[in-house]
Design a protein around this nucleic acid. Structure first.
Lengths: 228, 228
DNA sequence: CGTCCATTTGAGGTGGATCAACCCTAGTGG
DNA sequence: CCACTAGGGTTGATCCACCTCAAATGGACG
């Protein structure tokens, strides 16, 4: 994978990761004395493909990543967006089950899966942490199934905004890393429907736009009430 | 939970469970010397509710179970059907994240979650098995998000039939335990749309119906090709 | 300043939802 | 053993939320 990659190596270790507290992955790495490498991917670059052998587990240090599945005719369902601090690519079987791509220039920390699993056999805390990360992904997927199967377009967009608000807006303004098509493919909508929903929320004074991807939420309570 | 339950106790242990080989749960129970109890629920009876404390983990012995989430106005998304052999209700957090109901009269084997977690701290194989079960659920959810977000009604029904064929039809005929509404709520469709899709598949000679829930697949290859 | 995309907006089409009969069948009770 | 009933399932007619296709707008970057 890496030999073909356009990404560039950086010196590993010896850096304070820009990750807030509660960094499970960091805890594991430290605790188990694992070797973590840093790597960067260019915008729109593939990190791994669906069904490829899962050799590494990844943590976003900066940038953003989308993981998705494709149908044969190109229809795409994004399963999750991965933002700084998030772990992705953790599998228990031999292969990745989704494709991962960098949305922006992205740097990741990566660890050999094998070494993580090794650590899990000797350290129950590591084992539980890995299980817990998979369980968190499952919980996200269960909520997302409800969204995809039963929510209206406006409800989906409201849920998306609240999720992103929670996950990336420390400041008042949130800077979305992804385009309208990505949002649509995450929410099971077209990019036009996403755009129309955002326009309507803007017209209703529920959010402010300064550039299509710079959003300020003016009325979170209203969004929560739309979230059914 | 059980004090309010209409279910009835049966003598635990001392029975050969009607579970085929590869019974992960059984392996854990045997290996770790855990106490498993048997319990039965009546048709349409709730097994546990969303956000209730997750005290037990369940395995279906006979019958069928649906697990789902509800929106405030009653819209329902079924996350999974659980058939004999399947484990459900396994959580890592304190509470159940979906509601579980018996579709038919159903008997389950149950184990205290606490005792499973206990076993996981001393036996890495148990820990890995638990992780693996959560990972399987996640994989199912990832596939289902693709279905809910991007597949047409006919593709969803074809996928459903193939899933049920794989999971419960040892014989030529498959006996669906669930009604059209359940299927719709699993596939993100209405019961009418499910019915129309099945009628069309019947008209096209792809399946045979003897009673609405007794289905014989005549052309699996065709169904697979519709599964995009 | 011009080019290239991403985004917005508009107009019209459609797949699946909704609303409404009707049918079938398993269970019930006479 | 059969008539009745209730609930699940099917089918038809219509509607509408979202998709599709198209064009205009805007912002970033050379």
């Amino acid at each position: 994978m890496f030999t073909q990659s356009v990404g560039t190596y950086k010196t590993p270790q010896n850096r304070k990761p820009p990750i807030e507290t509660g960094d499970k992955f960091g805890l594991i790495v430290g605790r188990a004395n694992l070797v973590a490498t840093e790597f960067t991917y260019n915008r729109e670059e593939e990190i791994y493909g669906e069904d490829e052998p899962a050799e590494y587990v990844y943590q976003v240090l900066s940038g953003a990543v989308r993981t998705y599945k494709l149908l044969s005719d190109g229809r795409r369902q994004i399963g999750a967006f991965h933002l700084p601090g998030d772990v992705f690519g953790l599998e228990i079987g031999p292969n990745h089950r989704l494709t991962a791509e960098a949305i922006l220039d992205t740097s990741v920390r990566l660890i050999k899966r094998h070494s993580l699993e090794q650590a899990a056999t000797t350290d129950v805390d590591v084992a539980r942490k890995l299980w817990s990360m998979t369980a968190s992904d499952l919980q996200h997927a269960e909520n997302h199934m409800l969204l995809l199967g039963r929510k209206t377009a406006m409800e989906r967009v409201a849920a998306f905004l609240l999720e992103m608000d929670r996950r990336l807006s420390a400041a008042a303004m949130m800077a979305l890393p992804m385009c309208r098509r990505d949002i649509g493919d995450y929410l099971g909508l077209t990019l036009e429907t996403v755009s129309r929903a955002l326009s309507e929320l803007h017209d209703r004074g529920i959010l402010e736009l300064s550039g299509a991807r710079q959003i300020i939420l003016r009325n979170r309570q209203h969004l929560r009430s739309m979230n059914a």
